Simulated scan of single mutants.
Amino acid sequence: MASQDRLRFGVDLVTFFHPGFWGVGSEDDVIAYAQAEPEPFWRKLLDSVQQAGVTGVELTFSPFGWEHACATFGSVDAFAGELSARGLQLASGFFAGLEADGDPNDPAVQPAIIEKVSAYADFIAACGGDIMVVGTPLRHSPDIFPARFFDRAAAEKLADLLNRLGAITAEKGVRLALHTEAHSLFANGRDVDLLMLMTDPAYVHMCPDTAHLILAGADPLQVIDRHHERMIIAHWKDALGAMPADTPIGADIHQRHRPYFCGFGSGRVDWPAFMRLLRNRNYEGWAILELDAAADPVTDIANGLKLARQALLPIFR
């Protein structure tokens, strides 16, 4: 199988969240524009993905999510048609509900999470995809006392829910993959190892994000190699280095990640070694290029794709 068939390139739509791309002043204005003019919003978004040269789309939080897409075009089939008309496919859908919807270990919260995951999996399958990427809850801030530990007992509770969610999506033909989000419960090497140990590999897979692993102080190549058999999709992203270990974790943590991210090839990720690892472990699947809220997303993604094809794919072969 040729390398271009074994690796398929896509983009996470968070890349298009920069207000400048939409000609507005803030991210709130982007959301307001998407609500006021949904069809122009989605058509520009999908046209831009096509222009960047990738073939896969990873949906994410609103307004870049599945519910808004379906409401805009009227049905799953209509949205799938918009993708197909541009030569695009649904690579995956990102689910952020474990962080956003309250304590997932609370039995009162879990039914709503299960319902949302089930509906999302139905959409992904109907749209021709087969992967749901899931973010885990954030860690508790290290400056909060009394301390709350992510120990074996806490991991068992979260792993139980993840196993059940993975079984629900699997029944619908969709695989669930945990995303290595910095400052979440699945980012530093120890936490990734713990949840990989506690979850069932038949139902819970992995989506490593190279940049977020670096922000968490982990070596992405070591983490990926330890769990390569669980990797079914990967986020390709570069970072300048680790954030301080005592970084406070609050509602703005995702915004504070952004100064640490950088363009492809200009950060700490050893991309040639990464490609050798994928080659040696016989990886096949989606490579999701991503930048958080890029000012010029089409150019940035096109340049990342050019780097991958010219400098990295020859290694992969």
Results as ranks from 00 to 15, higher is better:
4 Q>P: 03
6 R>G: 05
11 V>H: 10
17 F>G: 14
17 F>V: 02
18 H>E: 07
22 W>V: 10
28 D>K: 12
33 Y>L: 15
38 P>K: 03
42 W>P: 00
45 L>V: 09
46 L>F: 05
48 S>M: 07
52 A>Q: 07
78 A>L: 06
83 L>F: 10
87 G>Y: 06
99 E>N: 10
101 D>Y: 07
102 G>A: 12
106 D>P: 08
108 A>C: 02
110 Q>L: 09
111 P>W: 03
113 I>Y: 08
115 E>K: 14
120 Y>H: 13
129 G>D: 09
144 I>V: 15
149 F>P: 00
153 A>L: 01
154 A>N: 01
159 A>N: 03
168 I>Y: 01
168 I>W: 00
170 A>L: 08
171 E>R: 11
172 K>G: 05
182 A>I: 03
192 V>H: 07
202 A>T: 07
213 L>M: 15
223 V>L: 05
224 I>P: 01
229 E>Q: 14
231 M>W: 09
231 M>A: 13
232 I>Q: 06
239 A>N: 12
258 R>K: 09
259 P>L: 13
262 C>N: 08
263 G>F: 07
263 G>Y: 05
266 S>H: 12
270 D>K: 04
271 W>C: 06
274 F>V: 05
279 R>L: 11
289 L>K: 05
293 A>P: 04
294 A>R: 11
298 V>S: 07
302 A>Y: 12
303 N>R: 14
308 A>Q: 04
313 L>R: 08
